[in-house]
């Protein structure tokens, strides 16, 4: 140490200013290292997709991939719509519509599960709300569960013809993604 053994005063203003300014810069520089893990531009560009509905006949379903997740699009029959409409609200384990196009507190009536009152077309994110398996029911011959909609084989969740949970461990109705009708036979998801 230099001649005077006095401990240098660390609370010097200049030092504090320099250290805090460096710390702020250091912290800001970390952001690129974190943000680089977020979905990149190529992933985001696929965030919205357009689907042509015209080839799907009544009673048929298709599964498409949207952001790496399956989306179920079902052209419902009149019978299915009637069945879904006939369900009493009290019988629903999850009373909320879970429709990305509506407010969060909308009730899970059948009309709230579709877009623009267009009851023929049911669009769902095909992921069981329990632990993320993909429910059965899209293909002819699949088990559709006790309520004629979808059935998740992982832990036995039953969904009805409006994709609402009716029985089993799943806590919520299947999600309806944000989408819009670009024309009568074309929708844009996302």
């Amino acid at each position: 140490m230099a001649q005077k053994p006095t401990e240098p005063n660390r609370r010097d203003f200049m030092t504090i200013a320099a250290v805090s300014f460096a710390a702020v810069g250091g912290a800001a520089s970390l952001w690129p290292f974190i943000d680089q893990m977020n979905p990149d531009a190529s992933a985001l560009s696929l965030a919205t997709i357009e689907v042509d509905l015209s080839p799907i006949e009544e009673g048929q379903s298709i599964t498409i991939s949207w952001r790496g997740k399956p989306v179920f699009i079902r052209h419902r029959t009149g019978k299915e719509i009637e069945e879904a409409k006939g369900v009493k609200m009290a019988d629903l384990p999850d009373p909320d519509a879970r429709n990305g196009n509506l407010k969060d507190d909308a009730p899970a009536t059948d009309i709230n599960r579709v877009k623009d009152k267009n009851e023929k077309w049911l669009v769902l994110v095909g992921i069981c709300t329990h632990l993320g398996c993909i429910p059965k029911g899209q293909r002819i011959g699949d088990a559709k569960g006790e309520y004629g909609g979808w059935f998740c084989p992982c832990h036995g969740s039953h969904y009805d013809t409006a994709g609402r949970i009716r029985k089993g461990p799943a806590p919520r109705n299947l999600d309806v993604p944000t989408f819009e009708f670009v024309s009568d036979t074309k929708i844009k998801i996302g």
Partner: peptide
């Protein structure tokens, strides 16, 4: 090139 063009801050990294 994907890093340079698409990844967030990829060009910088």
């Amino acid at each position: 090139e994907h890093i340079m063009r698409d990844v967030n801050w990829g060009w910088l990294l």
